Computed example of a mutant assay.
Amino acid sequence: MSEVAAVIDDLRDESDELDVLVRELSVEQWSAPTPAPGWSIAHQIAHLTWTDEVALLAATDADAFAGEAAEALAAPESFVGRGAEEIAAALAPQVLLERWRGGRERLEAVLREAPAGTRIPWYGPPMSVASMATARIMETWAHGQDIADALGVTRTPTARLRHVARIGVRARDYAYLVRGIEAPEEEFRVELLAPDGGVIVFGDEDAPQRVTGPLIDFCLLVTRRAHRDDLAVRAFGADADRWLDIAQAFAGPAGAGRAPRGDGK
């Protein structure tokens, strides 16, 4: 199996796991608020639906996607939320669920059939097929976490979290850029304890600044699904420490992030 096919398989599995979480929800549960202010569970799935459909457009019609990208540049603070709001408001839960399923299946098929070396335009530099699939894993997991939190469900961490961590590390300099801060020149060493007891590493082992902690906690941090104070992620070095305050794995504004729970963890 190729590396690209393996990443797409992980995207399918991540989506299927979230599907299990939402497919039996009542109408009332679809309206339940999530930790994202103003977003219900329906908004979370609507956002994934919207993004899958835009990714499909980017992969199949670059000119049409260019128009979407222009709209995003014109309203960077609101265009994502507007897309989710429009879909969530227009569709009953079961219709929304089927639209999400259909969109992600079509995107998967297009990604699998893409010729080697394909570059897909996006909101920023074009992405490889593997990178697009990885980005969709990250978003599916992150919005799935919002839904799990709303339902009071604790999810079992999987090896797929390595994709989320990888984007978080690769997006390090973007986190500085979006805040108008100059990024450090030197790379950091990141060492993360995976669910199976293994260690996932990024960066040179001789790098003077390091970040360590559980893989799940790092993923919660870079997707801004938990406050740093509530996580067992540690920095060694002033620049690494500053990064943990601003890290984000996604494009666009960082948002307010989560407030600390204040429970002393």
Rank of each mutant, 00 (worst) to 15 (best):
R82Y: 06
M132F: 05
M132Y: 13
A142M: 01
H163R: 04
E139P: 00
R172A: 07
A135F: 09
T134P: 05
F79T: 12
A116I: 13
P93C: 10
A114N: 07
A148V: 05
G102E: 08
W100I: 01
R101F: 05
L177V: 14
V80D: 14
E77Q: 14
P121A: 04
V164Q: 02
V153N: 11
R172S: 04
A109W: 09
R104K: 13
W122M: 00
G124S: 02
L91I: 04
D146H: 06
A142C: 00
V129M: 06
I120G: 02
T158E: 01
S78P: 09
I87M: 06
V169I: 03
Y176F: 15
A175I: 02
F79C: 14
A165F: 13
L91K: 09
E86W: 06
L96E: 11
A175T: 02
S78Y: 05
R155D: 08
R119I: 00
Y176L: 06
V153H: 10
A88D: 09
A92H: 07
A116S: 11
V110G: 03
S131Q: 01
R82K: 12
A114M: 08
E77V: 10
L111H: 04
L111K: 04
D146E: 10
Y174H: 02
S78K: 08
S78T: 15
V164W: 08
V110T: 14
R162A: 10
A75Y: 14
V110A: 09
A159N: 08
E108H: 15
Q145E: 15
E113P: 03
A90R: 03
R162L: 03
E105V: 07
A142Y: 02
S128L: 07
P76V: 09
G103H: 07
G152F: 05
